[in-house]
Amino acid sequence: MTPCKLDVRPLLARGEEPFAAIMSAVDALAPGQPLCLIAPFRPVPLFNVMSNRGFACSDRALEGGDWEVIFTPVSAVEPGLAPGSASAAAFWPEPAEVLDLTGLAPPEPMVRILETLEAMEPGAVLFALLDREPMFLFPELAQRGHEWAGNLAADGTCYRLLARRGGDD
């Protein structure tokens, strides 16, 4: 579903408080519709407020110091994704790298994924096919600020993983 876009930069430039505008935009969302917020800073206090209202968020820095935050209603996360998957994965760009890591012994798949991600541009996405869920990879991805979304194929024979390179901070 197309996210509802709200740019609060003009409001803030006029010295107005954007909170009410954001809340009325949230109230006007269609069921399952995400909200895409553009702000001149990373609106950290909002993350909690939105989390309490049942939204997961994913943010990225735009050029010129602005931030884009996508709030996705949690129920709208694609069904069947493994717990811990980033809710906004549906809005990620097409994968820039595709790795077939089936038939490799652990921890080789993890090594290949992390090495490839480290060489990619921030925000770029990698798709990997694995024999099983890479349990030890997830904490490492989170630690490095990368996001992921994955699930086991319906027949249980392989695991599909999308990982998005985090920003350099």
């Binding site: 997830f138 989170a142 600020g145 996001e147």
Partner: peptide
Amino acid sequence: RRPRNDPMQA
């Protein structure tokens, strides 16, 4: 402990 991939803590 396995940290969840939680953007709130990013």
